[in-house]
């Protein structure tokens, strides 16, 4: 199967196995006459039951849902020390609530953020916080509804790899990493704003 993963401006094979949560039936919520497409920040998902029922491979590098990692943390310690554990969480899960129990984030070779809907821009701020506030230096990956349209912004918000949605062509998406050559404002990839970089 061809890879959907973009890293270092290449399409590369994924050496990590992404562990998914068991699907549960979610109630369709309505607000203002429309189906609610977003989970609110802090919403209780995944459920404890989902976490308990999640199965993961016994060997190899695995990318685990954050809560699943927390649930099995002791058991996973050896693999964790071997740098075989990465964690992923969704845009509605508030990092400040679990950051302390995780200790030094740089013990994780990979952290991934799952975005359920393309238009959910929280992923950018979470990327920024992981880099600037929590000083995470390793691979930061975007998962889920990740399309060509976001990845230039994701790159600037601290992400370094992108798992493009299955029905989209990563060869097309990769071009967007170079959408602009000289951004105005300073951000993760280019720290200084244009007026500090270029004498005009």
């Amino acid at each position: 199967m061809k890879s959907q993963l973009i890293k270092n401006k290449n399409i590369v094979n994924d050496e990590w196995i992404t562990v998914e949560l068991p699907k549960i039936e979610q109630k369709i919520k309505m607000q203002a006459g429309k189906v609610v497409a977003f989970k609110l920040s802090g919403e209780d998902y995944p459920t404890d039951d989902q976490v308990i029922k999640t199965k993961y491979p016994e060997t190899g590098k695995i990318l685990l849902p954050l809560k699943v990692f927390r649930y099995h943390q002791e058991k996973l310690n050896k693999r964790f020390l071997n740098k075989e554990i990465g964690i992923w969480f969704s845009t509605h899960e508030e990092i400040h609530k679990f950051i302390e129990v995780l200790g030094d984030l740089n013990n994780f070779p990979l952290i991934a953020i799952y975005v359920e809907k393309f238009s959910d821009g929280r992923i950018f701020s979470i990327g920024n916080q992981l880099r600037n506030k929590y000083k995470f230096r390793n691979e930061l990956r975007a998962l889920g509804d990740v399309l060509k349209d976001q990845i230039y912004f994701l790159k600037r918000s601290g992400f370094t790899s992108y798992l493009i949605r299955k029905d989209r062509d990563p060869n097309d998406a990769i071009k967007s990493l170079d959408d602009f050559t000289e951004p105005y404002q300073g951000a993760f990839d280019i720290l200084d704003p244009v007026w500090k970089r270029i004498k005009r």
């Binding site: 238009s119 821009g121 950018f124 912004f153 994701l154 105005y184 404002q185 951000a187 244009v194």
Partner: peptide
């Protein structure tokens, strides 16, 4: 104006 143009973090606000 310059700062907010294509600001990477605030392209998809609520």
């Amino acid at each position: 104006r310059q700062w907010s143009s294509f600001h990477p973090e605030f392209a998809l606000l609520p």
